[in-house]
């Protein structure tokens, strides 16, 4: 059985794109959102979130821009790009196909979504 960290590693790009599809977010907010939405199942080593975000930015799937808050502090917000949306749609289909195939074997007789 794959370790949870391995599962997170292999799906981190899809998860990040999916979160950023909802709204632009900064790194710390992404960590919190991911943890809350997965009910604590997915937990990044926080320092490794940024290299993952930078890889996505380098591939043109997201962009980052600094914003100054009313209290004077600066945060880098990440936005998904058109290319990122297209990639996310493609990855969603792949995940769906994969999950359906796994369900067919692990839970035979269950309806496929």
């Amino acid at each position: 059985m794959a370790k949870r960290s391995d599962l997170l590693k292999s799906s981190s790009h899809s998860l990040l794109l999916c979160l950023l599809e909802q709204q632009p977010m900064y790194g710390y907010q992404i960590i919190k959102e991911l943890e809350a939405r997965s009910q604590g199942y997915f937990k990044f080593k926080e320092g490794t979130l940024y290299p993952a975000l930078h890889r996505l930015a380098k591939s043109g799937l997201i962009t980052g821009s600094w914003q100054t808050l009313p209290n004077g502090r600066q945060r880098r917000y990440y936005h998904i790009t058109e290319k990122g949306l297209a990639k996310l749609a493609q990855e969603r289909t792949q995940w769906q196909d994969f999950l359906n195939a796994v369900r067919l074997i692990l839970q035979p007789g269950q309806p496929v979504t």
Partner: peptide, 17 residues
Amino acid sequence: HELGSPSLVARQIYEAY
């Protein structure tokens, strides 16, 4: 502890750039 090992983070940053 939550941030993770600096060498791991640095290696991943290096590979990203």
